[in-house]
Write a protein that binds this DNA or RNA. Structure first.
Lengths: 112, 112
DNA sequence: TTATTATATTGCAATATTACGATAAATAAT
DNA sequence: ATTATTTATCGTAATATTGCAATATAATAA
């Protein structure tokens, strides 16, 4: 036990869950926020922005990278990270779908 | 160590992270999917739908409830769960903001 | 009252995540 | 070549999550 039973769910469900999970930590939201704030897509000064040690941030960046939410290109000694719009769009589309479905139902749910 | 350093991040960042985290498991995505599928927003047959034991599902429901994504109203012996649109909207708004920001940048990011 | 049914809670084992110091690897500067 | 700079990886401790059997709770039915 303890491990998620991934194989019992659909690919779509797992895909969305992986993206959501990657965003499920304030440090990683802060990283995304920072990447959006800085105009010239930024590299390693994220370490100076966040109140976490360098290895910890490196780990969070890796998780965002694994989920496909950001990409990193090496530039000399530093790495330039930026948001992958396509993957973020995919995630957004999921919520658009949900919204559409909820609108159809017109909130005729229970007694809320 | 081991625990998330919540206090170091903004309230907004924590809010979004909590919502994302709640959706960061395929079973919980499956629950949301099911609640959307069933017209008469349904209760405990989620247990029959998902390949998980009843206590496990109860726990996942609790997490969705804690995050504010769903609400449960007692109806006799059973409980009627449904999606809370407001909270979901809040989450969606975050992505709309991101999209807008990314559009401004026009993808002039690194060499991607 | 005594089942029955539906959901929640408890307790626990297995696994995953978070965080960081120490260290490695790789490039740039001297 | 040596030294700094930047990022990644390893190892490890603390904590959290996942999943379920057993049990509790609460409302209904007999």
């Amino acid at each position: 036990m303890g491990a998620t039973k991934t194989e019992h769910f659909t690919e779509k469900q797992n895909d969305i869950a992986i993206l959501a999970k990657a965003l499920g930590h304030p440090a990683r939201i802060a990283i995304i926020d920072y990447l959006l704030k800085v105009d010239t897509c930024i590299c390693g000064d994220i370490v100076n922005e966040l109140p976490l040690a360098q290895p910890t941030i490196s780990q969070h960046l890796k998780e965002l990278k694994n989920a496909g939410l950001i990409k990193g290109t090496i530039e000399g000694t530093s790495v330039c990270y930026c948001i992958d719009e396509k993957v973020l769009e995919k995630f957004q589309n999921y919520f658009i779908k949900i919204s559409n479905r909820l609108e159809k139902k017109k909130n005729n749910c229970c007694k809320l």
